[in-house]
């Protein structure tokens, strides 16, 4: 187990290192460096001005040297300043990470709360009309373009019915968390509708697999109540693949939901990554993307660990992966 963990950690480190370099290269491949963009708005800038600013931002140095400097500083926890926001990278990043975790965490919780019962129900009567209806509902959720759904929700609940606020993080000056709740409803609803389908189908598949197992038959034969068989025994085993999927999706939590965040003016990670890429803010884009990668890797590791921890049949001995 320790060897397994160590090898995975080493792998993760290599991936992160590679990733940081690749992002740096890609960002430099994007046309127009930051100073060019700053000066595009200033007609009177001279070549000397451009050279001066490039030196100031360290853009006059070769790529490898710049990357080396960044890496050195990053290793001691200094991620530099955002070019766009003139703030330390983490000062920019952390509040948005908080916003994203709130939004996506709530959506994930709600999704599971709905998907579990739906999936189990569908699995108990597969191919019946209810299963078909649930199936259709699931696919419908997956198949709607996200911004279209968001716009429809806003038009219906904020403009027509005026039940809910159209967008924003919360009321201005509002202190209590409960005041923020109405602002969460529409974005969480639109994220949930989009992800519920996938989870329901995972749950359904996992449950169907379990319900075919011998132990279920035995339990039924022994006269155990159907509810007890399904909810206590089968679901517990079906949890393994479901937890795996949740852990795998973990990384997505940290890279945010760009479209939903844009439509609901919810400043989160997705929007930050997009803006920093479009504004050529390398420091922010780099750290934000690395963060997202790191959490995905952590999620994968967690998924494996959960798999091993929950299922006694699997062990890590002698298995490199």
């Amino acid at each position: 187990m320790t060897r397994f963990l160590a090898s995975r950690l080493l792998q993760a480190l290599v991936v992160l290192l590679l990733m940081s370099f690749v992002i740096t290269v890609l960002m430099t491949l994007m046309p127009g460096d930051p100073v060019d963009m700053m000066l595009a708005g200033n007609p009177r800038a001279t070549p000397a001005d451009a050279a001066r600013l490039k030196a100031l931002y360290g853009l006059d140095k070769p790529l490898l040297e710049r990357y080396g400097h960044w890496l050195q500083a990053a290793l001691v926890g200094d991620f530099g300043f955002s070019r766009l926001y003139a703030q330390p990278v983490l000062t920019i990043l952390l509040p948005r990470l908080g916003n994203t975790l709130l939004l996506l965490g709530a959506a994930m919780a709600l999704t599971l709360a709905v998907a579990l019962p739906l999936g189990v129900y569908a699995a108990r009567r597969p191919y019946g009309w209810a299963d078909n209806a649930i199936n259709l509902f699931c696919f419908a959720g997956i198949s709607v373009p996200a911004f279209w759904l968001a716009l429809l929700l806003i038009l219906l609940f904020a403009v027509e019915l005026q039940w809910l606020p159209a967008s924003g993080l919360g009321p201005v000056g509002g202190e209590g968390w409960w005041e923020r709740l109405p602002y969460l409803v529409l974005p969480v609803a639109s994220l949930t509708l989009a992800s519920i389908g996938g989870y329901t189908r995972y749950v359904r598949a996992a449950m169907m697999g379990e319900l075919r197992q011998d132990y279920v038959r035995t339990a039924r034969a022994k006269g155990l109540g159907e509810g007890r068989v399904v909810w206590r025994h089968a679901l517990r085993n079906a949890t393994i693949p479901i937890v795996t999927i949740v852990a795998l999706e973990f990384g997505a939590l940290f890279s945010g939901a760009l479209v939903t965040e844009t439509m609901f003016a919810w400043p989160g990670m997705g929007k930050l990554i997009y803006d920093s890429i479009m504004g050529n803010d390398l420091n922010v884009a780099l750290v934000a993307l690395l963060f997202a990668t790191l959490t995905t890797l952590a999620g994968n590791l967690l998924a494996d660990a959960a798999y091993a921890g929950l299922d006694p049949r699997i062990s890590f001995k002698g298995d490199g992966a």
């Binding site: 809910l164 409960w178 109405p182 409803v185």
Partner: peptide, 13 residues
């Protein structure tokens, strides 16, 4: 807690 929060939100809304 996620579920509870949502119900509350709906009530507030």
């Amino acid at each position: 807690t996620g579920l509870a929060a949502f119900t509350l939100a709906a009530a507030l809304a």
